[in-house]
Simulated assay, not measured.
Amino acid sequence: MATTPEHDARIAKMTFSSIYPHYVNKIEKKGRSVDELHRVIHWLTGFDEKKLNELITQKVTFEEFFAKAQLNPNAHLIKGVICGYRIEEIETPLTKQARYLDKLVDELAKGRKMEKILRANP
């Protein structure tokens, strides 16, 4: 299922700070911690705690968020379906990166082991 230009533009303009609380709620409801969430975000983006909080405070868009990120070289190993889209088939890089993050948060909430989420043994 291909994304539309409108869908891609909507993701680009969303602020990370508006989505972050949803990530926290999702993982905490399933017994996971904010520290684990931050570990997952750090793995994908390279952002440490200080930088992540700075980006949340600045209310950066997803476009700005991922422009500042150093994407993990193993991010391409994140596969599967999230929000109705097969990650491997998403052509727009920013939309794919946002879905990578969604997928990692989903895996964390589903109780997957951290080594698997972080693609420790590809």
Rank of each mutant, 00 (worst) to 15 (best):
T57H: 11
S17L: 07
K113P: 01
N72S: 08
F62N: 13
K29S: 12
L104Y: 04
K68Y: 12
L55W: 14
V24G: 01
K68G: 03
R112D: 04
I82F: 01
N25E: 13
T57I: 11
E49P: 01
E115Y: 06
Y100Q: 04
R99T: 03
R99K: 12
L94M: 11
A75C: 11
D35Q: 15
E115L: 05
Q58K: 15
V24W: 08
K29P: 06
T92E: 15
D102W: 11
T45S: 13
N72A: 09
R32Q: 10
L44F: 15
I78G: 08
V24N: 01
D35N: 14
L108T: 03
L108I: 07
Y100P: 10
L55C: 08
G80T: 01
K103V: 01
Q58S: 12
D35H: 08
L94T: 03
T45R: 09
L55D: 07
G80V: 06
I78H: 02
L77Q: 13
P73V: 03
P21V: 08
E88L: 04
Y85Q: 11
C83Q: 14
F62T: 00
P73N: 14
R86Y: 04
E54N: 08
Y23D: 12
H76A: 15
L108Y: 05
E89G: 00
E49M: 00
E36N: 10
A98R: 12
T95H: 15
T92M: 02
S33L: 03
E28G: 04
K51T: 14
L44R: 09
P21L: 06
H38K: 15
K29Q: 05
G84D: 09
D48M: 02
L77R: 13
I82R: 05
A98C: 13
Y20C: 05
K96W: 00
G84S: 05
K26G: 02
K26Q: 10
G80Y: 02
G111W: 12
K96A: 00
I78M: 09
A67E: 12
E28V: 13
A109E: 02
M114R: 02
I19K: 09
H38E: 15
F65W: 13
W43I: 02
K68V: 07
P73Y: 12
S33D: 02
E107Q: 11
Y100T: 01
F66S: 08
K50T: 14
G46D: 05
T95G: 02
E89R: 09
K50R: 13
A98W: 14
G111E: 05
K96V: 00
H22D: 05
A69I: 02
P93R: 09
E88R: 03
Q97P: 04
I87M: 03
D102E: 13
I56Y: 04
Y85W: 08
K79T: 15
H76Q: 12
K113F: 08
R86L: 10
K26L: 07
K79G: 09
T61V: 10
H38Y: 11
H38W: 14
